[in-house]
Design a protein around this nucleic acid. Structure first.
Lengths: 214, 214
DNA sequence: GGATTAACTTGCGATATGGTACAAAAAGCA
DNA sequence: TGCTTTTTGTACCATATCGCAAGTTAATCC
């Protein structure tokens, strides 16, 4: 039930007035995200969330709203994190192959980490869940899929401009193949396919996309 | 609550002894499958299943066992259907490209059909659900993924033997790309990506796998 | 027609779940 | 020291869910 005994989290705080919070919203949201990602929306109870975050239900409620809102906020958080690591990879100039390797390695790390087994990709998990019945959630999922496509397309477009790919290469087709590779490893990771095999799939896909190993 | 008013389903029946069933197990299982596929395990209640199948809960029980068993039987049924259409496609001799087109078209039909929106792929839905926590279900999912890989590998191996693919082509790598394409359209279909776009993804992937359109 | 068999219908009980009301607690402010 | 403000902790409610028990109905067998 306890989360952390350090109330003065960030340095500068404007001296809040009432009783201090016993939790840090950011890390609590992270715990909720982990749970939702592993168990899905429907089979994660508020009791589970309460235990994982160290907050009791009323606190959860006042901090994040009801279960659906908490799920949405968790997903947004997931996307922000993913975007951040993507941006990091796109910051420097490098060969396509290397950039692809980094992107896939990052994906694998996200999907395979987790204390109680691989967690997979939250976008894929949400897409496959009953939650897609909710139009707002479905829109977010679609946006997540599109964002990944665009990142890969950007990657291949740059490569083509630099002459790393033949003129016949279609960046958007390659991007969809790359996204497909991400999706397949996300799914396989949930089935506990060992890391080695997932890495082999990635390597094979890269070879096909940018030309054989060298 | 009513399912069908035709008791003498198949022609030859060994004259059962007690009160006749008011349902046909096969079509009931199909309805259950539809529901599970759309809503997932956790958020499909026995009441939902009862209504969809036209059987009340005790009948469901005696026919299929508890909810988990029903889910497993639904998944097995799904796999049998998928295997059957695969076998059909592999029956005759044809160019790789055409065979791939048929396989993907079949997948699209399965994923996009459904009265209340696309249903997606049951293997993918199960992989992404909380049900993977169950070792037996996880094993079935893994088996489903592997079976698809093998079917595609078989397809590419034949093509290579017939000289349709260059000697450098690696059937198992191509197979994983093809599976990845299936997985990505399964996921996107759940996000309601329109059929046209999914078909474009398939076409692009085929071009990359077996060489440009001709 | 009566016995037997198998399925159907109704209804229940134990538990879990999402959500909330209300009072105690811990801080600042005067 | 009292007062206000914000959060926590406990308890609760209405509902939903799974699974099953007991009795009823409809068919065949003798």
């Amino acid at each position: 039930m306890v989360q952390k005994a350090k109330p003065p989290a960030a340095a500068a705080e404007p001296k809040r007035r009432g009783r201090p919070r016993a939790y840090e919203p950011d890390i609590a949201l992270g715990k909720a995200l982990d749970l939702f990602r592993r168990q899905g929306f429907a089979s994660t109870s508020l009791d589970d969330l309460s235990e994982a975050t160290g907050m009791n239900r009323p606190s959860l409620y006042s901090a994040f709203g009801d279960k659906r809102e908490l799920y949405i906020k968790s997903y947004q958080r997931y996307r922000e994190d993913a975007r951040a690591s993507m941006a990091e990879i796109f910051r420097q100039e490098m060969p396509v192959r290397q950039r692809l390797e980094r992107i896939f390695a990052s994906a694998l790390n996200i999907y395979l980490s987790g204390e109680t087994g691989p967690r997979g990709c939250f976008t894929v998990v949400t897409a496959a869940s009953e939650a897609v019945g909710d139009p707002e959630i479905r829109a977010m999922v679609l946006d997540g899929l599109t964002e990944l496509d665009k990142a890969f397309a950007n990657c291949f477009r740059r490569a083509k401009e630099k002459g790393e790919l033949p003129a016949s290469a279609d960046p958007s087709v390659l991007a969809q193949l790359a996204s497909a590779t991400v999706h397949t490893i996300a799914i396989r990771s949930r089935a506990r396919v060992p890391r080695k095999e997932l890495e082999a799939i990635v390597t094979g896909a890269i070879d096909v996309m940018v030309g054989g190993k060298r």
